[in-house]
Amino acid sequence: MNMGAVFPPVLLFTLTVIPHLGGLGALVRTLILRPGVTAIVTRVLMPRLQRFLKKWLYPPLQAFRGRHESRAA
């Protein structure tokens, strides 16, 4: 899930913002890229991905209880 959330903004920043910063060093470009990508992933993408994958990430307790009881029998 993290790769699916991080790759698109990194690609977007790499294609749109970084070419305009060509005169700056690699360290400065990275210092500009990192907070932008972190903010987009943390505030926008991860909450939406968690909501979209809610049933898979947080299955109902009955699913666990049923599996546990069948092992005990």
Rank of each mutant, 00 (worst) to 15 (best):
L12S: 06
A63G: 13
F64I: 12
P59Y: 11
M1L: 11
Y58L: 12
G36E: 11
I32A: 05
G36K: 01
V6F: 01
P19N: 09
V28E: 04
Y58Q: 10
R34Y: 15
I18L: 15
T14F: 06
L49F: 13
V10S: 02
L15D: 06
V41C: 08
L57M: 13
T14P: 00
V17C: 04
G4M: 12
L12P: 00
R48S: 13
A63D: 15
W56L: 15
L33P: 00
M1G: 08
R43P: 00
L45V: 15
M1T: 04
M46P: 03
F13T: 02
R71W: 13
T42V: 13
V10L: 09
M46K: 12
M3F: 09
L24P: 01
I32T: 02
E69A: 13
A73I: 06
G4N: 08
H68W: 10
R43C: 11
N2A: 04
A5M: 14
L49Y: 14
T16K: 02
H20I: 07
A73K: 05
T30L: 11
Y58C: 06
I40G: 01
W56G: 07
S70I: 15
V10I: 12
R51F: 06
M46N: 11
R48E: 12
R43A: 08
P59R: 02
M46C: 06
P35F: 14
G4Q: 11
G22Y: 11
V17P: 01
A72N: 11
R34S: 14
V37W: 01
P47I: 10
L61H: 08
L57A: 03
L15R: 05
L61V: 07
Q62A: 11
H68T: 09
G22I: 05
F7N: 03
L31K: 04
R71S: 04
E69L: 15
L49I: 14
S70L: 14
L33T: 01
R65G: 00
R34Q: 13
T14S: 14
W56H: 14
F7S: 04
R43D: 03
L31S: 11
T42P: 00
V41G: 06
A5C: 15
L45P: 04
T14M: 08
V10M: 07
L15W: 09
R48V: 10
L12Y: 09
